[in-house]
Design a protein around this nucleic acid. Structure first.
Length: 565
RNA sequence: GCGCCCGUAGCUCAGUGGAUAGAGCAACGGUUUCCUAAACCGUAGGUCAGACGUUCAAAUCGUCUCGGGCGCACCA
């Protein structure tokens, strides 16, 4: 609870005889700043006191003795509304931001605790496409949010580098891969082979069997299978890294599914020893019938392990290696059941940390025509999208600010930023229909809008040219636009905390839109630089504070905050 | 069939128990001798899918219905 709310709670405590916690729980922020800064609704008191809420509000008003920083109390209908001294408030907030700088919004609540975040996790031998963006960006955002709160974060790219599909790829490669495939292959070639395999397999079902054989060989450590697999992986990782670099996404580990291959045996044995398994339809399963779930398959009838088996082994390994406080899987909601099964399996194995594993799911990205599928080849490649975004920004710069220095860098920061922001600006559980025009629209509530606002603030500060100072006359920050802005700036730390609790980076992007639209309203209504020296100094401090908050927020989203654009 | 998610302005979305449901886009009108007009202001646009219920109070909670999406044994 902040200093301002605390003061109100204490004065209400005297007149209502309610416990502090209860009062604090009731206190609200009025919808309009004209109604005050905080409000106490009197509805619930009306039940015990048998009086109308409006009368209670009036009675409380006459009894209450407001002390600083509360300046005024009013009874507005069923609410008792509190008005904070604006000068004290803006001094308090401005100084805090000015002192903390890049650390404004940070906290130490995560000190000494580790969070594992599993995100992106694409399949090897396929291109990264636009529908891979969501996991990567939401995961990266969640990672940054937790880092801001002082947690030690471990970002893991759980590469899909294992499974029957590699058997399929090996078969396709050996049959149609060509002579000099080894030296010149790209992900495109691998992708073509994958598509071809599925086309051919429809005509010739025997191919599936061959593929299973090859995957078994791979699992058994067969030299030829192993070599081909490593080759596919190298090609893929090289291309992936290029795109992660473009997006500015960082991982602490690239331990994919194959990494757990050697651990799976032991995991399965321990599950067996606990008596959790049985054979059903020739497969080794954990029966989850009592929990109203389909069984968790550990081994197929050909003995090969599955996704779930490796996920269980991976979870144990990560707990042992990182001793996480919480582990977050940023994976699409179509895998909800899978994670419920895996978490339940972990629980049945006796791991008390099973409920520290969280599936942070998100909605599907699809075309108007339907689902995106690498297998069917109807995708938009991520690289194409990023290149196109940068290209469009480059044109806009040419048009609006042709004399800008570092055009290339800025075009990159703004273009990529636009894509990141667009992906993080709606709540994650919504399905998204991919639409080129919508993604590449840069007006209104977009990344470029936020960055542009930031650049203009930097421009003012450059023009001012003197150091920003906090020994200003805070009473000068009194217009409505100003007061609203300060208030919004004060909420940043709370927003970060909420974003962490809900695993929802969109709270940050929506908040930044709030900051920017309030700033722009202020900017258009009042001049910052003027002959009035005291007023200029006061507004400069506000400009600097706003610039700082926008920058900090953008960085959490994984975006740059260019100083000119 | 069963389970989960979604349904708010023409479109994309905020708002998830409190005061008059808000933004952006699209449409129309306006603002630049002035700190970057990638901005700002105004007009218009709503049966919060529907019904019933809980509550002093429901877009928000519950039940049901309708519509859309996803998942439900050897893919990941």
């Amino acid at each position: 609870m902040d200093y301002f709310k605390k003061a109100i709670v204490l004065s209400l405590k005297e007149v209502t005889n309610l416990p502090e916690d209860e009062i604090a729980g009731f206190i609200e922020i009025p919808p309009d700043i004209k109604m005050g800064d905080y409000a106490f609704p009197c509805y619930s008191l009306s039940k015990t006191l048998k009086k109308s809420p409006a009368i209670i509000a009036t009675e409380l008003l006459s009894a209450i003795r407001p002390v600083a920083p509360v300046r005024e109390v009013k009874a507005l209908g069923p609410y008792l509304n509190f008005f904070i001294d604006k000068a004290i408030f803006s001094e308090n907030i401005s100084k805090k931001i000015f002192e903390e700088k890049d650390r404004y919004g940070c906290s130490a609540i995560g000190a000494g605790k580790t969070i594992v975040v599993d995100y992106s996790s694409p399949n090897i031998a396929k291109h990264l496409a636009v529908h891979h963006l969501r996991s990567a960006l939401i995961g990266s955002g969640v990672y940054n949010v937790y880092k801001t709160l002082g947690y030690k974060c471990v970002g893991i790219n759980h590469l899909g580098d294992w499974g029957t599909q590699f058997g399929q790829l090996i078969v396709a490669y050996k049959k149609w891969g060509g002579e000099n495939a080894h030296t010149s292959y790209t992900v495109t070639d691998l992708n073509d082979l994958y598509v071809k395999f599925h086309q051919e397999a429809e005509k010739n079902p025997g191919l599936e069997g061959e593929a299973r054989e090859w995957f078994k060989k791979l699992e058994a450590g067969d030299a030829e299978a192993r070599e081909l697999w490593q080759h596919f992986k190298d090609i893929s990782l090289k291309e992936f890294q290029k795109i992660y670099d473009m997006l500015g996404i960082h991982f602490d580990a690239f331990t994919g599914e194959s990494f757990y291959n050697t651990l799976v045996e032991d995991t399965v044995n321990r599950i067996k020893e606990k008596g959790l398994t049985r054979i059903s339809e020739e497969a080794l399963i954990i029966d989850l019938e009592p929990y109203n779930m389909p069984p968790c398959l550990l081994r197929k009838k050909d003995d090969a392990t599955l996704y779930a088996t490796r996920d269980i082994a991976a979870a144990e390994y990560r707990k042992k290696t990182y001793n996480f406080e919480r582990m977050i899987y940023v994976v699409g909601s179509e895998q909800k059941l899978h994670f419920r099964q895996v978490f339940k399996a972990l629980e049945l194995m006796g791991h008390d940390w099973a409920n520290h594993c969280i599936h942070v799911d998100f909605g599907l990205m699809k075309f108007k025509e339907g689902k995106m599928s690498t297998r069917k080849g109807n995708v938009v490649l991520l690289e194409d999208l990023l290149v196109e975004a940068v290209e469009r920004i480059r044109k806009i710069i040419e048009e609006k600010n042709p004399s800008l220095e570092n055009k290339e860098t800025v075009a990159h920061e703004v273009g990529i930023g636009a894509i990141i922001f667009a992906n993080l600006s709606t709540k994650r559980n919504k399905d998204v229909v991919f639409d080129w025009d919508a993604v590449l629209n840069f007006e209104g509530e977009t990344g470029p809008y936020v960055q542009y606002t930031h650049a203009r603030l930097c421009s003012i500060l450059r023009k001012y040219g003197k150091p920003v100072a906090t020994d200003i006359q805070y009473e000068l920050l009194k217009e409505e636009e100003t007061v609203i802005l300060v208030k919004i700036l004060s909420q940043f730390p709370l927003i970060i905390r909420k974003a962490s609790e809900a695993y929802e980076p969109s709270l940050i992007s929506n908040y930044l839109i709030d900051v920017c639209s309030s700033l722009n309203r202020f900017y258009n209504a009042h001049r910052v630089l003027s002959d009035d020296e005291e007023l200029t100094r006061a507004r400069i401090l506000l400009v600097d504070a706003t610039r700082q908050v926008i920058k900090n927020g953008l960085n959490i989203l994984g975006m740059h905050a260019p100083e000119r654009m």
